[in-house]
């Protein structure tokens, strides 16, 4: 389970970029016409962040999660969140073994490298918090015993935006655990035609993805991504942008320091995906929308407008 820690291989930035693009190529074969979404998911994965898909059912979220798990050579887990779901259904539980007269631990789906939490807002807050502890600290505590999860633990959660009845909306503090909120969106006409052609003979989508990484490589890559350079001017640019957004009159809940750290890390991952070992203001801008929209709250309909206004105000460093 913790085999990822066994890897000591050091990747260069170019190798990381190549591997990431190789994985993205595989994912693009599985999810058609969503290159931009896949690139952002990849950035999130490299930055050790979690993703919340705020989208309609049937758009390929599960498929994407399974494909990611396969491509990174990790274990895939899935939780279908319902109101009667208990925390132990996610984390696992101890059961008495009558043969050995001992309690055996039955691991929950959270003990995976990639976890898909479907319709996370349909389960109770108690269960949600169990999941969020795992997301934030990459560990779970069961019967006073703390168990570590995979260091590369990656959660893809989904929530249905149109169903409000019987749901438990995620509070802002819990939304802050997610690195990004994305929408896959409906595919284009051409993509749908291609989709129909592919599934004309098969009932289910074939997942013929062979792992691109050895066990443990993902965590090594994630650690390496954290070493991508940020010059002071770009850091100041990030802080100025955050301040600008916080001071926007329509924003009630601005960007927390934790969010700023996540933003920086995702910008680093984006720089790697762009083939660079340093972050530019364009990287900061490219990841700002999905990174910040999950955590901004206030009197506005579209957080992207607030973000764009900030970027249109703060000069880029040069």
């Amino acid at each position: 389970m913790n085999s990822v820690l066994e890897s000591t291989r050091q990747f260069s930035f170019r190798e990381i970029s190549d591997k990431a693009h190789e994985i993205m190529g595989l994912l693009n074969r599985v999810i058609l016409g969503k290159e931009d979404v896949i690139k952002r998911v990849m950035a999130c994965l490299l930055a050790r962040g979690h993703i919340l898909f705020d989208d309609l059912p049937g758009l390929g979220k599960t498929t994407l999660a399974k494909a990611i798990a396969s491509s990174v050579g990790g274990k895939f887990g899935r939780v279908q969140c319902t109101p009667d779901l208990l925390p132990t259904d996610i984390t696992g539980y101890n059961i008495y073994n009558q043969k050995t007269h001992e309690f055996d631990f039955v691991a929950g789906p959270v003990f995976a490298d990639v976890l898909l939490a479907d319709e996370v807002n349909r389960t109770t807050p108690r269960t949600q918090s169990a999941l969020f502890e795992a997301m934030a600290e990459r560990q779970v505590t069961i019967d006073s015993k703390t168990r570590s999860l995979s260091p590369a633990f990656f959660v893809i959660a989904t929530q249905n935006p149109i169903e409000s009845f019987g749901t438990y909306p995620l509070p802002e503090a819990q939304l802050d655990r997610f690195a990004m909120k994305l929408r896959i969106g409906l595919p284009s006409r051409e993509t749908e035609i291609e989709l129909l052609e592919t599934y004309a003979t098969n009932q289910t989508r074939p997942l013929e993805i062979s792992p691109c990484l050895h066990p443990g490589d993902l965590f090594s890559i994630q650690e390496q991504v954290a070493r991508v350079n940020l010059v002071t001017a770009v850091r100041a640019y990030l802080v100025d942008l955050a301040g600008q957004i916080r001071n926007h009159p329509d924003v009630r809940l601005g960007i927390s320091p934790r969010a700023l750290l996540v933003w920086q890390r995702i910008a680093q991952a984006w720089a790697v995906l762009e083939g660079r070992d340093f972050v530019t203001p364009d990287d900061v801008r490219n990841v700002a929308g999905p990174t910040l929209s999950v955590r901004l709250a206030g009197e506005f309909d579209d957080p992207q407008k607030i973000i764009d206004a900030a970027f249109d105000t703060v000069p880029i460093p040069s």
Partner: peptide, 8 residues
């Protein structure tokens, strides 16, 4: 230019 301005 990116390298000039933002690379360490």
């Amino acid at each position: 230019l990116d390298r000039l301005h933002y690379a360490p």
